[in-house]
Amino acid sequence: MIEDVNSEKNDYIKIRISTNRKENWKKICSKKNISLTNLIINSVENRILDDERRKVLAFIEKQDNIFIKIETNINQLAKIVNSQKFISKTEFDEFRNELKIISKLKEKQNEMFEKIYAMLSK
């Protein structure tokens, strides 16, 4: 169930649990840097928790940075080849094979990101 962003939160659910359990839940929330309400709602609705969402987004950003470094290296190589006006066939074939590998990895990464975004949108 997706909550309407404009809906007003003015209803309460009271539950009875042991003091120990409540303290344990609060410790979990403290470690994850989330609210107890968030923990309960997302657990009941089988949604990803906010701390997990932050980790996933950090992972995506890290992956993007790795590919930016690879793209920078490719551009540097292209600049060297352009200045020398020459690249051997062996070097060119190796470079082309590396580009194919990178392209396949990027495709896999994009597929994974699509799955992650779908999971995050729930």
Rank of each mutant, 00 (worst) to 15 (best):
M1N: 04
M1Y: 01
M1L: 12
I2A: 12
I2W: 04
I2T: 08
E3Y: 09
E3Q: 14
E3R: 15
D4G: 03
V5A: 11
V5D: 10
N6R: 11
N6G: 01
S7W: 02
E8K: 13
K9Q: 11
K9L: 12
K9M: 12
K9W: 05
N10Q: 04
D11F: 14
Y12W: 08
Y12I: 10
I13N: 01
I13S: 02
K14S: 11
K14H: 11
I15L: 14
I15S: 03
R16T: 09
R16G: 02
R16W: 06
R16P: 02
S18W: 03
S18A: 04
R21L: 15
R21A: 10
K22M: 07
E23R: 10
N24R: 13
N24M: 14
W25F: 15
K26Q: 12
K27R: 12
K27M: 08
I28E: 01
C29I: 04
C29N: 03
S30I: 00
S30C: 01
K31M: 12
K32Y: 05
K32F: 02
N33P: 00
S35E: 11
L36D: 00
L36F: 10
L36P: 01
T37V: 09
L39W: 04
I40P: 00
I41H: 09
N42K: 15
S43R: 06
S43M: 08
V44F: 13
E45P: 01
E45D: 12
E45W: 06
N46V: 07
N46C: 07
R47W: 09
I48A: 09
E52K: 14
R54L: 15
K55P: 01
V56H: 03
L57R: 15
D64V: 12
I66Q: 10
F67H: 13
F67W: 14
K69E: 14
I70W: 06
I70R: 03
I70N: 05
N73Y: 11
N73T: 09
I74K: 05
Q76R: 14
Q76L: 13
L77F: 05
L77C: 03
L77K: 03
K79D: 04
I80G: 02
I80F: 03
I80L: 10
N82L: 05
N82R: 06
Q84E: 13
K85H: 13
K85L: 11
F86I: 06
F86V: 07
F86A: 06
S88L: 02
S88N: 02
K89C: 00
K89F: 05
D93R: 01
E94I: 00
E94L: 02
R96N: 05
N97L: 08
E98W: 01
L99V: 07
I101R: 06
I102T: 12
I102Q: 05
I102R: 02
I102H: 04
I102G: 02
S103E: 09
S103Y: 07
K104P: 00
K106G: 02
E107L: 10
Q109L: 15
Q109T: 03
N110T: 13
N110W: 11
E111L: 10
E111Q: 10
M112P: 00
M112N: 06
F113Y: 13
F113I: 15
F113P: 00
F113Q: 09
E114M: 10
K115M: 08
I116M: 10
I116W: 07
Y117D: 05
M119I: 11
M119E: 07
L120Q: 03
L120A: 05
S121A: 11
